[in-house]
Design a protein around this nucleic acid. Structure first.
Lengths: 339, 339
DNA sequence: CTGTTAGCGCCTTCAG
DNA sequence: CTGAAGGCGCTAACAG
């Protein structure tokens, strides 16, 4: 029961040219030796007939499906949706389909997805791991079985593969340094789950800046929780309850920074003058909200683009040396850190 | 040159059970008559061996690839990213892969995508059309050739197929009515391209409300342009330049409404008291921005979910009756329309 | 440079 | 109820 409609195949172009199927196949792929004349004719006929390769068939015979998949926590934020846009653009230009999987930031769901992945119709994976995921083994296995994996943004430790990341350490360092330069001395950090690399790196950058400028490191001023705005709001309320209140808050991302701003507004604390706030991402909302939010811009589109290029590069070769690419961020100074 | 690694196939489970491939195939699909005992054994073995169907092969033989694709303008906004989340969830639960295509809101790109679509490895399409797209013929052709298409949000006229939409007319009517009830009398509408159905419906709702409450319809107060924040900003500046200025602005979406707010702030016009602003979408930003934005909430997630369910339903049958599903919106009244 | 043959993993007649 | 055989569209040896 094949598709009932007029999908035209290489056989069709072969017949209408009175040559063999394999010659058409070769001409189309521009491989082996085919005479220029034949290739010309084939190419013309193919486009005349509007021939389109059947990737299912190609996938079957040579294991190249022209499908790559993205596994990521969610798409409903600026960062991830922009990364996807970058990935899709590169993939589209290279005739790859992008298949989307959403983990919903749940470790359980992520594991479920990985285990049920139709690897048979996937050439490779781009993944940003979920929350506290420690799916080492699973990713290792996938790679061993022959599907290249490139991590972006949130990666998993201990897996020997490529990664494309923003410079979390230096971004956090810059933001903190800016807060210090602006005169804030009691700088808190509201961040993500402890186990995540992204958390650790940004925290390290923050600490390094404090150390460099001889400011005290107060563990009470570092709060770990999730990445959402609500988390930012709650973390901030916690900070305000404590005995010695901070005079600035550096959030791991803009969402949490905005949560902090919401909390401060509710408490009638003046943002900037009383408590400075800085974020990380440069979500467009950071330029719209009032006061506007100082933040470290992440090159989201670039990260998507480069991740995909790297994956496609890996797909060419049988063996590849993992690469780690780190892209710099850029600090945008806005009203939320003006005293 | 098949995949070099241990992808296990029905042949593997057949051999380890000493039965034929076809029996395994039948047992797995729960079709034809297979003895309960055999089926049991096959099912157990399959899961023991972690067998996963190769959709490329299945696709080849029976034209069912378990791939559906989404074609839409962009993912970097609240509405579309939420719709996608809904689609992905349904598809995932039904073992369908979701392939993503981005038109970048360019008609040209959309046409290019449609024409190059690897229909051979796609069971159906979910599409929200680009901007001023009038790709009637192309979609018609795809449908005729056997790939079901379900439109969501932005649809194309004249194509006989299913659609899932929010209630654009009544949403716009409600928003306008609310503005009127709040005491605004000179209500402008900044909207999308004239040719788009979504524009036409929201415009009609706006006009209907004005008519119903005997307010004048002033064509100078209806401005057509794109959907971006920048467009909203420019449209608003235009409105302010005119002789008779409006005292309220209803925008086709929150992005443009926010653009309007930005423009008003720059001109030092008090939002709400001097000029009211209402949007459409209920982007989370509308509750964060100051003043908070009155808007008509669109059931984005539901739209994605239902669209996908509808498409999958269509995939079951050979012939299906197109359905048009319209979901209601809900007005959220916030500060931007308080005098 | 080109045609022939076999087979990728699976489903579907057609025989038992 | 089950097995054998053929083929989906395409590529990859193997011969010329």
């Amino acid at each position: 029961m094949r598709r009932p409609f007029n999908t035209i195949t290489i056989r069709d172009v072969a017949q209408s040219l009175n040559i063999s199927i394999s010659t058409v196949s070769r001409a189309l792929r521009d491989t082996y030796d085919v005479s220029q004349t034949t290739r010309q004719k084939v190419l013309e006929k193919a486009s005349e007939l509007n021939y389109k390769p059947n990737y299912s068939a190609i996938g079957l015979v040579q294991g190249k499906t022209h499908n790559i998949s993205i596994i990521l926590p969610l798409v409903t934020n600026y960062y991830f949706s922009t990364v996807i846009t970058g990935i899709q653009q590169v993939a589209y230009n290279r005739d790859y389909n992008v298949i989307l999987y959403l983990t919903n930031d749940s470790q359980e769901k992520e594991l479920q997805i990985i285990q049920n992945l139709p690897l048979g119709c996937l050439d490779g994976l781009l993944v940003s791991t979920s929350f506290r995921s420690n799916a080492f083994g699973h990713y290792q296995k996938i790679i061993k079985e022959g599907s290249p994996v490139v991590f972006f943004d949130r990666s998993v430790d201990g897996v020997h593969t490529s990664r494309v990341l923003q410079d979390d350490f230096n971004g956090a360092y810059q933001a903190t340094e800016h807060l210090i330069a602006s005169g804030y001395t009691k700088i808190a950090h509201i961040t993500g789950p402890k186990e995540m690399i992204i958390t650790q790196k940004r925290l390290a950058g923050y600490r390094q800046a404090l150390r460099r400028y001889k400011l005290p490191l107060n563990d009470k001023w570092v709060i770990h929780s999730g990445f959402s705005q609500e988390c930012g709001e709650q973390d901030t309320l916690h900070l305000l309850e404590g005995g010695s209140k901070p005079d600035a808050i550096f959030a791991i991302n803009d969402r949490k920074a905005i949560g902090a701003m919401v909390a401060l507004k509710k408490k009638n604390i003046r943002i900037g003058t009383q408590i400075g706030v800085a974020g990380f991402t440069n979500d467009p909302i950071s330029g719209i909200i009032s006061p506007t939010l100082t933040t470290v811009a992440e090159p989201a589109f670039e990260i998507g683009k480069i991740s995909c290029e790297l994956l496609l590069k890996h797909l060419q070769k049988k063996y590849f040396e993992p690469e780690e690419i780190i892209l710099p961020g850029k600090l945008y100074i806005r009203e939320s850190t003006m005293r």
